[in-house]
């Protein structure tokens, strides 16, 4: 790296445009001294964006933490209405999608165009599968009147035996708090799903560009930075799954 200084003396002070060139690759922007500097600046910027995302989801995680402590019985019973097999399957699907994305970054780095396109397509397919399972779960909540709002019903929580649910009935005051649980469930999984959908739209665009060969000649930054975003969305789900689905799965002592 030292040699970069010697072979590329500072020419920014000159007004002669021809002397300004020190980049050898087309993707190397002239305001960066070296490719490593450009790459690091890009990663740094992407991480700063992800930190704002941590704060964004963090607010909702905090609300969850607080209300779960205040209304634990309602949270435990309402959480048990979610399907663990669907949640666990979706976790596996999302991890698989993340793995494909990671291998895609590798494919771009070793300049394998077709491998990169294949991995981006697989990432997209698993991402869409995740959204599909989520839609099925949302639909089930709609049928059960568990979507907060005018149609929300606490009937299953004040009289679980009538619905064949093996839970202790909640008193009506506490049963009302299940609506807070479902509000947080929809807010958190909904914002997560919005991030997934934005990611899937970006994946279509990236797959198109990858097919054109934009990312298989040494220019990896868009793939790498999208990978950071996709993995971040994975991480949010890694916390959502145990916190929303697995609060109290051992109720029948």
């Amino acid at each position: 790296m030292d040699s970069a200084i010697a072979t590329h003396p500072h020419t920014h002070e000159t007004a002669v445009h021809a002397d300004h060139e020190h980049a050898s690759l087309p993707q190397h922007r002239h305001h960066f001294e070296t490719e490593e500097q450009q790459r690091e600046a890009g990663s740094f910027g992407m991480w700063l964006f992800l930190l704002t995302e941590i704060m964004f989801f963090g607010g909702m995680f905090f609300a969850y933490l607080l209300y779960r402590n205040w209304y634990y019985p309602a949270f435990a019973v309402a959480s048990n209405q979610l399907s663990v097999p669907l949640g666990a399957a979706n976790t596996a699907i999302l991890i698989t999608s993340g793995f494909c994305m990671a291998v895609g970054v590798w494919a771009a780095e070793v300049r394998r165009r077709k491998m990169l396109v294949l991995m981006l397509v697989l990432t997209t397919v698993f991402g869409i599968a995740f959204i599909g399972v989520k839609a099925d779960e949302y639909h089930e909540k709609y049928e059960m009147h568990h979507i907060p709002g005018a149609d929300f019903s606490v009937a299953q929580f004040v009289n679980p035996a009538a619905y064949g649910i093996k839970e202790e009935p909640l008193n009506p005051d506490m049963a009302q708090k299940t609506e807070i649980y479902f509000f947080l469930y929809f807010a958190m999984t909904g914002m997560h799903a919005v991030h997934m959908i934005i990611g899937i739209v970006l994946l279509f665009w990236l797959t198109h560009r990858a097919w054109r060969g934009d990312f298989s000649s040494g220019y990896v930054a868009p793939i790498e930075n999208f990978g950071l975003y996709w993995h971040f969305v994975d991480i949010v789900w890694l916390f959502l799954f145990p916190l929303l689905y697995l609060i109290n799965r051992h109720p029948l002592h």
Binding site: M1, D2, A4, I5, H8, E33, T34, E36, Q37, R39, E40, A102, V105, W106, E109, V110
Partner: peptide, 14 residues
């Protein structure tokens, strides 16, 4: 190291 003070280097994970 003026151009790359953090010694940022590209590492490919396999």
């Amino acid at each position: 190291n003026v151009t790359n003070p953090e010694h940022a280097q590209h590492h490919i994970v396999t």
